[in-house]
């Protein structure tokens, strides 16, 4: 009866709390160090820089676009993987995990090589043509942003590099989300006269709302932090393809630690805002 003694669980809780607590301490320590290092004047100075303001704007826009694109891929992929058994399914599951497992630099190099091939070259031309003839470039000139003349080393490369990795995370999130919805309801919808599409859009999708939000937030936050693929595939040209992680890297490389930390702050704030938004909307839904 030794195990039933009072206090017998103390070593268990002590060990588990100590181990998880040390990780929590590391996170708190990092944030506290950032806070103590940067001053308000450093932050204000960083915001006065035109380059940094451009980088903040490009980050916000590119992350939103890549998160939306991620959802376009993740919703159907997650649904198919969750609901259907088909030949080559485990292969497909593995395929969607590759961007998560690949080293980020390799993702960038692979994208760069892809856009050297004939299909990639075709996409370059299509993108350049579309940007020119749809009036997109006039809009870019009007808001003072660089024109789009292709994909690689241009702003579309930033979005594509972010999307490649973020979509893989979104696929995972959507699959888990659909797994949690009872397929019985869609089956009943079929007996009530729905086609597959109607059952999906009218029954499954409305219930997946919290999952959609979680996947979108995850994709957005991933895109915000994407550095390797962006650096390799889009470059680090100021006022053109520079996003927040690039700014941190560029400022660090010239020894401007204050600016690097200030920009890091912007990213920390964005990450917290995304987490908070996802949680509060999720709770409102419950």
């Amino acid at each position: 009866m030794r195990g039933l003694r009072r206090g017998a669980d103390i070593p268990f809780f002590a060990a588990f709390i100590a181990l998880s607590g040390s990780y929590a301490l590391l996170i708190i320590g990092m944030l506290a160090a950032d806070l103590s290092f940067a001053s308000a004047s450093d932050l204000a100075k960083a915001f006065q820089s035109r380059e940094i303001r451009y980088s903040i704007a490009l980050s916000l826009v590119s992350c939103t676009v890549s998160a939306l694109l991620s959802m376009l891929a993740a919703v159907p992929a997650g649904y198919l993987l969750s609901r259907f058994q088909f030949r080559g399914k485990s292969l497909a599951e593995g395929l969607f995990d590759i961007p998560i497992a690949l080293p980020p630099l390799v993702v960038g190099v692979s994208l760069l090589i892809l856009f050297q091939t004939p299909p990639g070259d075709f996409l370059e031309k299509i993108t350049a043509g579309a940007a020119r003839y749809t009036g997109f470039n006039s809009l870019m000139r009007w808001i003072g942003a660089p024109e789009v003349k292709g994909v690689a080393y241009e702003t579309p490369a930033v979005v594509l590099a972010q999307f490649t990795v973020a979509a893989a995370f979104a696929v995972r999130a959507m699959r888990v989300s659909f797994d949690q919805i009872d397929p019985r309801q869609e089956q009943v919808a079929l007996t009530l006269g729905c086609g597959r599409g109607q059952a999906f859009f009218r029954v499954a999708l409305p219930q997946a709302r919290p999952g959609l939000l979680a996947a979108f937030t995850l994709a957005w936050a991933r895109s915000m932090g994407e550095f390797g693929p962006v650096l390799v595939f889009a470059g680090a040209t100021r006022m053109k393809t520079e996003v927040l992680p690039t700014t941190v890297f560029l400022e660090l490389s010239v020894g401007n630690l204050e600016a690097a930390v200030s920009v890091s702050f912007v990213m920390i704030a964005a990450a917290f805002l995304a987490l908070w938004l996802a949680r509060s909307i999720g709770q409102a839904h419950d």
Partner: peptide, 21 residues
């Protein structure tokens, strides 16, 4: 026939109500 074309009413064991409706 497809389920949608059969015109048979079906109530599964747990009801399977649509939680968003």
């Amino acid at each position: 026939l497809k389920p949608s074309a059969r015109q048979i009413g079906y109530v599964p064991q747990d009801g399977a109500l649509f939680s968003a409706m």
